[in-house]
């Protein structure tokens, strides 16, 4: 337990030292200010949320849509905030200090992964929850489904960070980690819309290749559709993107461990 808490403690201080950590709070604070003053926004002389012209379901849907977008933006910041953590930990002169401790490489890497995930998720939960509580208070609508959606969104960060972790180990560079991640993200999003490409690609072999790539890669947008669905209280819309993306994350993490165990530092 001492090993876990000390790596967690170290990771917390490192994240706190990064400017992007403060950016999360600035973004959250700005959003809080925006929504704190929202009751003053008037339509036809009436408060936007008290006008009675807007049905409750519509407001709830609007809140869910807003948070789905906000989660995406916060995830984007989290990618930049966490991509450099592992390359920094593995940098020359620092990694030797960790490797010289009586802790196996697998244990070291898993604890580091868990530490980053726990701290980043905590920041995400706190900032999103504070914002949601304010908005729900202003709108007079509160639903526990939001928090379920929040958990699903955190699940997305789990496989996102596994991908970052893999590139972090493989390339040992923050820039290459971010590039690697965005290549996967870009290709995955393209593949999610592969039906359009099928209209141009009559060749079945190519269709097969695109299909296989789609099934292998994580499904970012389709996963987010689940977050939205859960937040609206409709449960998972399609479980396939959840488990297949999770599987990709597990494989990425296992590969990262394998590379780390074999590598010389």
């Amino acid at each position: 337990m001492a090993k876990f808490t000390s790596i967690l403690y170290d990771t917390f201080f490192e994240i706190k030292d990064r400017k992007i950590f403060w950016l999360y709070w600035i973004v959250t604070f700005v959003m809080i200010l925006v929504f704190a003053f929202l009751p003053d926004v008037k339509i036809n002389g009436q408060n936007i949320l008290e006008s009675g012209n807007i049905p409750e379901e519509f407001v709830a849907e609007g809140i869910a849509m807003f948070f789905n977008g906000f989660f995406g933006f916060m995830m984007f910041l989290m990618v930049f905030g966490s991509a450099g953590l592992l390359p920094s930990y593995l940098s020359k002169g620092r990694v030797e200090l960790a490797l010289a401790k009586p802790i196996s490489r697998t244990q070291l890497l898993l604890i580091k992964f868990l530490s980053v995930f726990l701290i980043m998720s905590s920041i995400f939960i706190v900032s999103c929850s504070v914002l949601y509580l304010l908005i729900s208070y202003q709108a007079g609508i509160f639903t526990g489904y939001f928090f379920l959606g929040l958990l699903v969104a955190i699940g997305k960060f789990l496989f996102i960070y596994a991908i970052l972790f893999f590139f972090g180990i493989a390339f040992n560079s923050t820039a290459a980690t971010i590039m690697g991640y965005f290549i996967i993200w870009f290709v995955s999003n393209l593949l999610e819309a592969r039906e359009i490409a099928y209209q141009l690609l009559t060749n079945k072999v190519w269709q097969g290749i695109l299909d296989t790539a789609y099934h292998i890669l994580p499904k970012f947008d389709e996963y987010s559709a689940n977050t939205m669905s859960v937040m609206k209280g409709n449960g998972f819309s399609d479980f396939y993107p959840v488990w297949s993306s999770g599987l990709f994350g597990v494989i990425a993490l296992l590969l990262a461990i394998l590379i780390f165990k074999r590598r010389d530092y």
């Binding site: 403690y9 170290d10 620092r94 030797e96 960790a98």
Partner: peptide
């Protein structure tokens, strides 16, 4: 180690806490 790179975002006491815990 030679050419070490200690976590410079910490204080000396905090660093000892981390590496002591890892031991």
């Amino acid at each position: 180690p030679e050419n070490h790179r200690f976590p410079d975002y910490m204080t000396g006491a905090q660093m000892l806490k981390v590496y002591g815990g890892m031991s």
